[in-house]
């Protein structure tokens, strides 16, 4: 197996000593409102017309080196939580810190420690994987010569080879684009890696490749990983602990085995994570996903 060395250039920007838990979230709430619009305001309306509580008083802590799963259907606040940690949103209440650094007041320092792979791989579509990844590498302070060499190594490791590395991203399948997104995040050698449904839409083979790569990042590169998913198997296979999220709240948090113990009974001696989700939220995650897709 090819093992990719972390970028020395990036590590110079990271503080030598990191204190505290990798991620500490205390009493965080995020509410989105949509206003009455310009016409409404001119008519004297002030109150918001729509109010959505995306994250509702969430607290948890993740230790260095953990793979921590956030399990829940679409639209339940997982991505909002990841955006809050990524410094892309500010919490309304509560605090979020990454190795003791607050995401709002120490934003610049937090950004050096993290990277994120979102459910929707976001790239300049006309640019090639090499051009897109060089853009990311330069922003993260990775030495350009090292980056050019490593980009080829990581992409080849993920099954993207030859001309594909130099062709526009728009010519690639969604699965291939997602692999490039993972390579881009890995290139900056994040200490905290945020994965927001990284395997959604991938074929089973690609999914296994990505899952193996995630383990490798944790085991060989001292990264802590937050993994959002609605895939029960993925959560159980990869995560040390799992938080089940429903309507913006954490309804249970523990190891997969301990979560199963919560619902184990004489009638259900060998419960699955799906059974746990069903019992704690009152509905099946598959139903939720289908419902969301129909909206």
């Amino acid at each position: 197996m090819t093992v990719i060395a972390p970028s020395p250039a990036t590590h110079r920007l990271v503080p030598a000593r990191l204190h505290g838990p990798a991620l500490d979230i205390r009493g965080v709430t995020k509410v989105f409102t949509s206003g009455p619009g310009l016409a409404g305001r001119l008519r004297g309306k002030r109150a918001p017309s729509r109010r959505i509580v995306a994250v509702d008083d969430v607290s948890f802590s993740v230790e260095r080196g953990e793979i921590f799963g956030i399990l829940g259907p679409n639209g339940t606040g997982k991505s909002t939580l990841i955006r809050l940690v990524s410094t892309l949103l500010h919490p309304d209440t509560g605090t979020i810190s990454v190795f003791g650094k607050d995401v709002v007041t120490d934003e610049a320092e937090v950004k050096r420690l993290i990277n994120r792979v979102s459910v929707d791989p976001s790239f300049f579509k006309k640019l090639s994987p090499m051009e897109n990844l060089m853009y990311g590498a330069r922003m993260y302070g990775v030495d350009p010569a090292y980056a050019r060499r490593t980009i080829v190594e990581i992409l080849e490791r993920l099954g993207i080879e030859g001309r594909s590395i130099w062709s526009p991203m728009e010519d690639m399948s969604r699965g291939m684009q997602q692999k490039v997104a993972i390579a881009r995040a890995f290139l900056s050698a994040p200490i905290l890696l945020l994965l927001d449904e990284p395997t959604t839409g991938l074929d089973p083979h690609s999914r296994r490749e990505v899952q193996a790569f995630v383990r490798e990042i944790r085991d060989l590169h001292d990264a802590t990983i937050i993994l959002c998913t609605h895939d029960m198997n993925e959560a159980e296979t990869l995560c040390d602990r799992i938080a089940i999220v429903d309507h913006g709240r954490i309804v249970a948090l523990d190891t997969a085995a301990a979560l199963k113990d919560l619902v184990r009974s004489a009638e259900q001696p060998e419960p699955t994570l799906e059974d746990v989700f069903l019992q704690l939220t009152g509905r099946s995650i598959e139903e939720d996903i289908k419902e969301e897709e129909l909206k």
């Binding site: 892309l88 993290i114 994120r116 979102s118 300049f124 922003m139 993260y140 302070g141």
Partner: peptide, 14 residues
């Protein structure tokens, strides 16, 4: 339009 705004704004650059 490209969908890259969040990636750019998350990067450690002023």
């Amino acid at each position: 339009w490209e969908g890259t705004i969040e990636y750019t704004f998350m990067a450690p650059v002023r």
